[in-house]
C-alpha cells in the first residue's frame, strides 16, 4: 500500500486533522515505541531503499583495515550508489565500522583525483598531463636513474646486480596481485633493493 501520490482532499480543517494524525511525534510522545509503526508517516511509508535502484551488485572487501570486512557495492549506470556490509560474511555478518561505512563516501569523494598532475622542478603549481605522456616520461626517468647507478659487481667481484638510487614505498593497501607485479618488476627486473611497504610503519 502506498500513499505517496495521494493528493490531500476535503476541507481545510479535515486536511489539518489528517496531517496532525499523520505526524509521528505525538504518537511517540504518547509512549508508542519509536522504532515501530509509531515512527511512520505518509512520507516514510513511501520511502524505498536506494539499493532497489541498483542495476548491478558486486562483492568487495573494505579498503581500510585488515579485519577484511566483506562489502556489497551497488551500482547504477556504472556509478556506485551504495556500499553495504555483506551479510553472508563470517567476518562482519553485514556490519561495518565508521570507516568501512564511509566507503561509498570515499568512492564518490569530491577529493578523488581523476587526472595526472605534473610538477616540474622548481615549479610552484601543478599542471595536468596526459596519462600516456606521464607513463613514457616515468619509464625514461626510471631507465636513466637505473643506468646511471646500476652496480653489477662490487670491487671484490661479488655479484650484486642492484641499484641503490631508486626506491619504492607502498603495498599494504594494494592487492596481492599488485604487490606481486611490483616486487617482480622492481626487484627481479630493475634490481631495486629499496622496496618497502607499510609493514614497518
Amino acid at each position: 500500500m502506498t500513499h505517496r501520490n495521494r493528493r490531500p482532499r476535503g476541507t481545510l480543517t479535515g486536511r489539518l486533522v489528517g496531517a496532525l494524525q499523520d505526524w509521528s511525534v505525538p504518537r511517540q510522545l504518547r509512549g508508542a515505541p519509536g522504532h515501530a509503526k509509531a515512527a511512520e508517516s505518509a512520507m516514510s511509508r513511501g520511502l524505498r531503499p536506494r539499493l532497489e535502484q541498483a542495476d548491478r551488485v558486486g562483492t568487495s572487501i573494505c579498503p581500510y583495515c585488515a579485519v577484511g570486512c566483506a562489502q556489497l557495492i551497488y551500482a547504477r549506470d556504472g556509478k556506485p550508489i551504495a556500499v553495504e556490509g555483506d551479510p553472508r560474511s563470517p567476518v562482519n555478518q553485514g556490519t561495518l565500522c565508521p570507516k568501512g561505512a564511509a566507503t561509498f563516501g570515499l568512492m564518490v569523494s569530491p577529493g578523488r583525483l581523476d587526472r595526472c598532475l605534473h610538477r616540474a622542478p622548481g615549479a610552484t603549481a601543478w599542471r595536468e598531463v596526459p596519462l600516456d605522456w606521464a607513463m613514457e616520461r616515468i619509464a625514461q626517468l626510471a631507465k636513466r636513474s637505473r643506468d646511471e647507478s646500476f652496480v653489477s659487481r662490487l670491487p671484490d667481484g661479488t655479484r650484486v646486480n642492484h641499484t641503490l638510487a631508486m626506491a619504492s614505498m607502498g603495498g599494504a593497501t594494494l592487492d596481492n596481485e599488485e604487490n606481486y607485479l611490483i616486487k617482480k618488476l622492481f626487484s627481479a627486473g630493475l634490481g631495486m633493493v629499496f622496496v618497502e611497504n607499510q609493514a614497518r610503519v
Partner: peptide, 8 residues
Amino acid sequence: KGLFVMGQ
C-alpha cells in the same frame, strides 16, 4: 634519485 610511492 627516484622514488615511487603507491598508496602510502
